[in-house]
Nucleic acid binder design. Structure first.
Lengths: 219, 219, 219, 219
DNA sequence: GATGAATGAGGTTTCATTCAT
DNA sequence: AATGAATGAAACCTCATTCAT
């Protein structure tokens, strides 16, 4: 956690430091990122930095926290507060859309997040022992969908949660490559969801597919 | 490329260096990885390292090449050579299975590969200008499946390719967390494929879903 | 250019660094000189050096600049500002004398300067594209002397400028070998000038020497 | 001195090593020159080098010796063997001409020589305590000229020897800058000699110049 | 005698962090 | 609270020289 001195700073200065840190962590890996660059961009003295933060990791954790917070803000709050009023697929669509919008508008922040995902050691230090929150959230959502009878009961919830989480990241990747997909935002999300929905939803005539997934195992 | 001197080394010594390098690159990012640590772990003099490799990047490229080579070896060669004899979903299953086995047996190597994926600049230096091969490969496979009439024609191939690539990585993630899923290998793959297959396959009565994905857009 | 931090240093410390640098560059070529030796002699931390200077070249350029500055200070300023009031040979004598005094009192500095002269590549990096200033200056001076009628018109100005420049360096050489010449400073200069003056000056009866230099060519 | 093994080498191989060494020492200072580069260019093994030479310095000394030898070869031998049959100025002209030709045809070798001149420490190690041979030679020559009555008796022999040596180097400098002087070789030498001759030669009416050099001292 | 791999000291440079002002 | 100079560990890399084959 940043020290009190940091939070006592005038809003403007604090923001400058945050921006500088995001810039640096967005361009270089945690280990490669330089406090020197941050303080220069923020226009503060090197010594001051250590009066606001314990060390480099302290700053990184703080920034990662901010990112998570900001990402949450992209969610439709009303919807999230009344989750029980929406169907599984409605909620899923909102999650994808908000993730997409966040990534589109904050590509630098996504990069920082991705860095964490693929560096378990770093992840452990920053996020601690807790499981990946996104996976947990999707698991909960899937359980609800299952309970509501929206989902194919043959699906393994844990695995489906992984797939959905992975798709969130795939979504992010699509941002970084201009022109790969020439649909507009909502369409991209809809195409993804079209596949997912078919993959997950309960269908009345599930019987015609036999004891899947075991049936597939024979292929 | 490593220098000739490296390939002239006794097998055992060469392997020790490779192991040391994999250890280091598996634990730290490319930029953070230390030649010093590699030579110490390998039990060679620092100067010797530079008689085997041009520099740190040279070593890294070599290791990445080894990984790609090893990963290829997990594929069922007969199947890949006669791709036209198999259905889309049969091929997909083989790809997932081989990816899964590789990840299961070489978790350290997967980590190094993942590092590349999320560092475009590094990726460019190591792999060169070529696009992500996995995505390209899945695109080709999907086009074939589409031509064979195995797939739902409403699917966007590029987006589906992303999803499948993403799932490959999700699969890898499952390795790192013991006990998250308590199914055995083939079952995990089958559960994933069950979802994917439902998501992608052509179904006779597609009409009952209306002009999806646009139909979904109204949700 | 050294960084501000260097100029903010207490005079004494700054001088210690300069002295250490001069010592090192005086004893070893630029490429061979060791920052390590400089910081040790100056009694500062290695890191500190890089807070004062960009790199080794930065330090070297600075030292060379100091030398040029110091050398200028040996010139009789009044005389240089009113060059038109003096004859060619009076000016030449002042130049030699100042060069001699500088070399006598700063033998280490002369060494560093000489190093530049015989390393065109280094010279180019440090001094830039400009021609050897000394040669240019002597050319100007000779042209003036020619215009004033002080010099033998048969002389080739460019070649004479080279000779004079070379003599400046010869003068410097005499410093390094104690006792080679047992005259005092002014006498050494006067003996040199005696030869030069006879060599260059216009003489009324130049006719009796025939079409020299071609006449000499027959010798 | 190189070891016997070196002299037992086939002529061709020996020459290749010499060429490689000259190339390297011509491009980089002694300290900066790399044995590695020499052995590569010569196509021999690193270990072999140390069977031919004691160390880097041993090679350097040998090369410098070769250069001196080669330079001597440019002198007109007949003339040098019968020095007493020629006048001071005839001999001087031959020396300049041979120096000029040598420099013109072996610019790389001159560079190596110049390196020595401006690094007293290196000079001492390579040439030993002996004085600069060129200066000594010019001193002898001047003494002879003086005895023969060719030279102005007011001249200081030691100083004149320096000037002449310096001019030899100036001559070398002129080689490196194409187009600075647009005369052909002999003309350049003649112009230099014209100045020198006027500067040094005895003139019948020396009286009209008063007690020079002291006369100049009043300027 | 020839080879070339092995060695390790030593060089420049970077940067997080401390500390005196 | 703010500053920024000082520090020194540690990184990459080069190269003369040795030594086993």
């Amino acid at each position: 956690m940043p020290k009190d001195t940091f939070f006592n700073l005038p809003e403007e200065k604090r923001q400058k430091i945050i921006d500088a840190a995001i810039d640096e962590f967005g361009q270089r890996s945690f280990y490669d990122a330089r406090i020197t660059a941050v303080v220069e961009a923020a226009g503060i003295a090197k010594g001051s930095f250590y009066q606001y933060f314990e060390d480099k990791m302290d700053l990184f954790k703080y920034i990662v926290g901010l990112i998570a917070e900001k990402k949450m803000a992209y969610l439709n709050k009303n919807m999230m507060l009344r989750m029980e009023d929406y169907s599984f697929f409605q909620l899923l669509r909102e999650l994808f859309l908000s993730g997409f919008r966040f990534a589109k508008e904050n590509p630098r922040l996504v990069l920082i997040g991705l860095q964490l995902l693929n560096n378990p050691e770093l992840f452990y230090q920053v996020i601690g022992a807790q499981q990946d929150l996104a996976v947990q959230f999707y698991e909960k959502l899937l359980e609800k969908g299952m309970a509501d009878g929206d989902l194919d009961p043959k699906i393994d919830v844990k695995i489906a949660a992984r797939i959905l989480t992975g798709m969130t990241y795939s979504l992010a990747d699509l941002i970084y490559e201009d022109g790969v997909v020439d649909l507009d935002d909502m369409e991209i999300v809809d195409h993804m969801l079209y596949i997912v929905e078919n993959g997950l939803k309960k269908r009345p005539d599930a019987r015609d597919r036999g004891g899947c997934p075991d049936g597939i195992a024979g292929a």
